[in-house]
Simulated scan of single mutants.
Amino acid sequence: MRKNDSNTSRSDLRKSKKKHKVLRIVLLVFVLLVATAAGFTAYEVHRLNPENRFSNLKVIGGTGNAKQSAGVFNMLLIGSDARKGDSASHTDSMVLIHANLKDHTYNMLSIPRDTRVYMDGYGYTKLTSVQYISQVNHGTQAGIVDAVKAVSNLTGVPINFYAETNYWGLQDMVDAIGGIDMNLPFKVTLTHAWNKAYQGRTYQPGMHSFDGATVTELVHERYSLPGTDYGRQQLQEAALIGIAKKMMQPSNVTRFPALSQSLPKFLMATNMSSEDMVSIGLSARGNFHPEQQIKYRQVKGRGAVMYDDVLKANNDQVILAPDQLKTVIKNYFTN
């Protein structure tokens, strides 16, 4: 009986040792997996950290790198009238952004489409014409670069990134995040709607929930607004704040990587990578308050009939106040 007990004990001991050995191997593999994942995560966090991601940035249309602090960059948002299949388009709106991802401030300056600018090789013309003329003569990419250079020359701001969208791109983006809440500062009547079904619709001041099509029509309107182009700038600000707030909701933050992979649907063109955009999103997570951190700056201008060197005729142009422009750029668009 004792002999059998002894054999059983040794057998159990061997099974126990084998079981513990297997357990140790499983634990070792698990530890290695965790260590590998932790190392990968640490690497990704380091690589996507804004101060690492956005440093020694190149200047579009320039040579070398801009002297900017790490985690700081300048970007031009371009809204164009491009349609599918078009090789050239006019810029309908332009927003210059100075982003500081360290203190989470985003200063924006909307530049009227009819602003008088200098175009290399041609002379003075409207800003809206630069991209179109250059794309017709030199190709799609050259047109975007020339539009960026025209804004950089006008403002003195070195620009690192650009992103161009159109009617359908903005509509798709807003719809992809489930629509937005938009606070209208004044009454808006749609006088030149892209979609004729929206023509003549009126929206009262205050907070509204809008889908992509409505948002797109609102930021395109200008003729019924106080100050026309300057009224449009206020609507653009309201839309951008609405988009930013919706993007930072927990349900959308987790979708940043997936949304960034869908960028070709939203953007006509950009030199910003998906990882750049994920880095921006991660930097804002947990410390993003659009109403306080997104600031729209305005520079007033005067209308004047001026000779257009490109069109070889006089037309209505906007001359931005040079002293005010210089002050705004110095205070909000430099390090």
Rank of each mutant, 00 (worst) to 15 (best):
H90R: 01
L32I: 08
Y203S: 02
T155R: 07
Y203I: 00
N137M: 12
G64A: 09
Y118W: 08
G179H: 07
L27D: 00
T125D: 06
M248Y: 14
W168Q: 06
K67N: 08
R222C: 01
I241K: 10
V95W: 04
S87R: 11
K295S: 01
V328N: 01
T128Q: 03
P185G: 03
T128I: 02
P112K: 06
V22G: 00
G303R: 09
T334V: 10
L218E: 01
T125S: 01
K312Q: 07
G200P: 00
S80Q: 12
A88S: 11
S55C: 06
I159V: 08
T105V: 12
G227S: 07
N271Y: 08
K19L: 13
I243N: 05
T270A: 08
V148D: 02
F288D: 08
L240V: 12
L76C: 03
G156M: 11
S274D: 13
I133Q: 11
G178M: 15
D5I: 15
K18T: 05
D81V: 03
Q233R: 06
T155N: 01
S152Q: 02
F266G: 05
S134G: 00
I144T: 13
T216Q: 01
D211M: 05
V34M: 13
N7W: 01
M1C: 08
P205Q: 03
Y122D: 00
Y296I: 07
N331A: 09
G200H: 09
Q171M: 15
M268P: 01
G139K: 00
E51M: 11
Q199I: 11
K102D: 12
G169A: 11
D229F: 14
D86M: 08
Y167I: 10
F73E: 12
Q236A: 09
S16D: 03
N252I: 15
M268C: 06
R222F: 06
L218N: 05
V328P: 00
K21N: 11
S262Y: 10
G143T: 04
G64V: 09
D323V: 03
